[in-house]
Design a protein around this nucleic acid. Structure first.
Length: 562
RNA sequence: UGCCCCCUCGUCCAAUGGCUAGGACCCCGGUCUUUGGAUCCGGUAAUGGUGGUUCGAAUCCACCGGGGGCAACCA
């Protein structure tokens, strides 16, 4: 359906991979990996990494591994691995192999033994606080633990008993023996393994010696034969321990870690802690709330995977930490939807119109194309026209400003796919509110053209009152009212900048009857209003639509000027 | 405060010591239009600063300034 060729733009990583392939640096096809920890739902930031890693493998004829970095039994859950797999597939990618760091625990243990034997690692029995204290600070060197010079035999014995479960959590840890005065804090004898008597979602209670990130990550890459290990900027300092470990473990042609800037989208938060708070405190309806930029939220909002891929590509890959404007995201969404979804008519805030010269009880079936002339898709339907209609309240003004092209007393406009109508009377209630319009129609303009060649300035959307279906519209806006909810001044909570209008529910909207038969998840453009998707909350006779994104609205800009 | 990374239009990304610093988004005009949509045409707008190397610097070097990361038995 989407006709884009999807040729990603070049970037420094693609250049590097191309060069490595040309020089046959690894002696085999390239291999990348996507290594999520299954402790939360994937979000737009993950999408960038997924597009990069899976895209690279696809473009260079290599392999891509999905590896769950499940080394922390306290936070991980099978439901997250399922969500991650589902969302990767939704994005349009498939992995060549599926791995779990938790399957490498034995191999990692063997490497640990090897390091101990080489005098490159030792068991430390200091408390957590002591370890931290003895690490020093960024300006002062650390001091060696009193256990640092334990014999190899003792270390081996302790390590085996750690694995055997003889010690409680925290009694001992395995540390690399490097340099307590190292200028890179990460290299100050980093902790490699810890004891944790917790139930791991895959290994149950059968294992209690858990590798930490630095120990598990690079070695897992090396075990799998990854060639290019891509991660975000904050792991820059970890590269040194990564290289140290794969070298000490003796891997030939070890993977090369390269860092790139993570995606930061204005007006959004994606940290697990913040997402959790939004969900738990009821600021959003769940992990798939359409205001969230989790992939499940994005999906429910109506955005397509093609749009997300195009967006990620448009953002590019670079080393510069950067923020991306919401406008760039919305552009990608509209650009994709424009070319693929049918147009239908929906009146969001109805105003009743009586066509006084149209016979009562009569119904006219008008032809209406699903697509505009410049979208290369075919299809049309009949829409009913009758004496009583609804139009958009905003499409009528009793005393219109300059450049207002819509309906006003005495003015003539075109009803989309229908007739020209002229407003002859304005009916008000006791309070002076406009409650109904009386108009006349010109039978000669059926279909939207006047045989006498006269033009009208405006075309407005409408539905037949007797035929329209009631529906609920959920109009979404940004969840926050500041671009950088993560960058608030000290002490200000991010929930203080929540946008109170991020969700507006319109109950009495009127949509053309044909859509009632469409399945949940059908996308439309409601003409002149925006792109919508029917939500899973829809029930027969109680349709619900989520607004994916508004249309660009140059009238709103014009109106805002005055 | 030590180490590391980064700094090009408002935003995102290019320019790999050599042509007028290019593209996209946004914005502003205009064209076209049965969506104030889309399309098409045009426009505004940038190399953080100072020195240096060089025939030639956004690119290399130095210093200054600014932004970010690192002191979890998280990843």
């Amino acid at each position: 359906m989407c006709v884009s060729t999807e040729t990603p733009r070049r970037d420094f990583i693609r250049d590097m991979v191309a060069a490595d392939q040309a020089s046959n640096k690894f002696g085999r096809p390239i291999c990348t990996r996507f290594p999520p920890e299954p402790n939360g739902f994937p979000h737009i930031g993950h999408a960038k990494s997924i597009c990069l890693n899976f895209g690279l493998a696809r473009e260079f004829g290599g392999r891509i591994h999905l590896r769950f970095d499940d080394t922390n039994p306290f936070t991980e859950d099978i439901r997250f691995v399922e969500a991650i797999k589902r969302d990767i597939r939704w994005l349009g990618f498939e992995w060549d192999a599926e791995y779990y760091a938790s399957d490498y625990f034995e191999q990692l243990y063997d490497i640990a033994v090897k390091l101990v034997e080489k005098g490159k690692a030792y068991v430390d029995s200091e408390t957590e606080d002591e370890v931290r204290e003895h690490r020093g600070t960024v300006t002062t060197p650390g001091t060696p633990s009193t256990y640092r010079d334990r014999s190899v035999v003792e270390n081996l014995d302790l390590l085996a008993r750690m694995k055997a479960g003889e010690f409680p959590d925290g009694a001992h840890v395995l540390r690399a023996k490097i340099d307590l005065a190292h200028h890179n804090m990460i290299m100050r004898d980093p902790i490699l393994m810890r004891v944790a008597h917790a139930t791991h979602y895959r290994r149950g209670d059968t294992w209690c010696l858990y590798p930490l990130y630095d120990f598990a990550h690079g070695l897992s890459d090396a075990i799998e034969g990854i060639t290019h290990s891509l991660c975000t900027l904050e792991f820059k300092d970890n590269k040194e321990i990564y290289d140290w470990l794969v070298t000490e473990a003796g891997f030939e042609k070890p993977p090369e870690q390269t860092e790139f800037a993570r995606l930061v989208l204005d007006y959004t938060v994606v940290s697990k802690r913040k997402l959790l708070k939004l969900v738990n405190d009821g600021h959003v309806s769940g992990w798939d709330d359409p205001r969230l930029h989790t992939l499940s939220g994005i999906r429910r909002r109506g955005v397509t995977p093609e749009a997300i891929r195009a967006f990620c590509d448009s953002v590019g890959i670079a080393r510069k930490p950067a923020r991306t404007e919401m406008a760039a995201y919305e552009h990608a969404v509209r650009n994709d939807l424009n070319m693929r979804v049918p147009r239908v008519l929906c009146v969001t805030r109805p105003l009743r119109v009586v066509i006084t010269n149209y016979p009562e009880g009569e119904v006219d079936e008008l032809d209406a194309s699903y697509y505009p002339h410049d979208v290369p898709l075919e299809g049309s339907r009949k829409i009913p026209f009758s004496r009583e209609l609804y139009i958009e309240r905003d499409d009528f003004m009793e005393d219109p400003p300059r450049k207002f092209f819509r309906l006003a007393p005495g003015r003539e406009v075109r009803l989309r796919y229908g007739y020209f109508i002229t407003c002859t009377d304005v009916v008000k209630d006791a309070a002076g509110n406009v409650v109904e319009l009386h108009c006349t129609y010109d039978p000669a303009t059926r279909g939207g053209n006047a045989p006498d060649g006269r033009k009208v300035q405006g075309t407005i959307h409408w539905v037949s009152a007797a035929h329209a279906v009631d529906c609920e519209l959920r109009l979404y806006d940004t969840l926050f009212n500041v671009p950088d909810p993560d960058g608030l001044p000290e002490g200000q909570d991010f929930t203080s900048v929540l946008n109170p209008n991020s969700l507006i529910v319109l109950k009495g909207a009127k949509v053309e009857p044909g859509v009632a038969a469409d399945p949940v998840g059908t996308r439309y453009q409601f003409e002149r209003t925006g792109y919508f998707i029917s939500d899973e909350d829809s029930r027969p006779g109680a349709l619900v639509f989520n607004r994916t994104v508004t249309l660009r609205d140059s009238w709103a800009k014009e109106a805002a000027k005055s």
